Simulated assay, not measured.
Amino acid sequence: MAAGDGIQLDHLKVVDNDFLDVFMPYELRLAQRRAMVWGAEAPDLQPNAYVGLYLVRLEPAAGVEGPPWDTVGRTISGHTMSLLRKVLRDSDIPAVISDWEFLAVLRDVDPQRAFVVAQRFLTSAGESGELREAGLLTRVGYVIYPLSPQPNLPVERWHLLLDLARHMSERGRAAASGCGFGLLRGPNLVETGIPESDLVPLAFQNVDTLTKAGILQIQRIQVLSGMSPAG
Rank of each mutant, 00 (worst) to 15 (best):
V51S: 10
V51I: 15
G52S: 15
L53Y: 11
V56N: 00
L58C: 09
L58W: 02
E59R: 15
A61C: 11
A62C: 06
A62N: 08
G63N: 11
V64M: 10
V64S: 08
V64I: 14
E65Q: 13
E65L: 13
E65T: 14
G66R: 10
P68W: 05
W69G: 01
T71D: 15
V72Y: 00
V72G: 08
V72D: 10
R74I: 14
R74L: 07
I76C: 07
S77K: 04
S77I: 01
S77D: 02
G78S: 08
T80C: 13
M81R: 06
L84V: 10
R85N: 11
K86G: 05
V87Q: 05
V87D: 01
V87C: 02
R89K: 13
D92R: 01
I93Y: 03
I93Q: 11
P94E: 08
I97G: 03
D99P: 00
W100H: 11
E101Y: 01
A104S: 11
V105D: 02
R107D: 04
D110T: 12
P111N: 09
P111A: 10
R113D: 13
V117Q: 02
A118D: 05
A118M: 04
Q119R: 12
Q119W: 03
R120N: 10
F121A: 01
S124A: 15
A125D: 03
E127P: 00
G129M: 12
G129P: 07
E130H: 04
E130L: 14
E130M: 13
E130C: 02
L131I: 08
L131S: 08
E133I: 06
A134E: 05
G135C: 10
G135K: 09
L137A: 06
L137R: 11
T138C: 15
T138W: 00
R139W: 03
R139Q: 14
V140D: 00
V140N: 02
Y142F: 15
V143W: 00
V143S: 02
I144M: 08
I144L: 10
Y145S: 13
P146G: 07
L147R: 04
S148N: 09
Q150H: 11
Q150R: 12
L153D: 01
L153S: 02
V155E: 14
V155M: 10
V155W: 04
W158N: 02
W158I: 00
H159C: 07
H159V: 12
L160I: 03
L160A: 13
L161Y: 07
D163V: 04
D163K: 12
L164A: 05
A165Y: 03
R166T: 09
R171K: 15
A174D: 14
A175Y: 12
A175Q: 14
A176W: 08
S177C: 10
G180L: 02
G182I: 04
G182E: 07
L183S: 01
L183V: 04
L183T: 04
L183C: 00
R185G: 11
V190H: 15
E191F: 09
G193W: 14
I194Y: 03
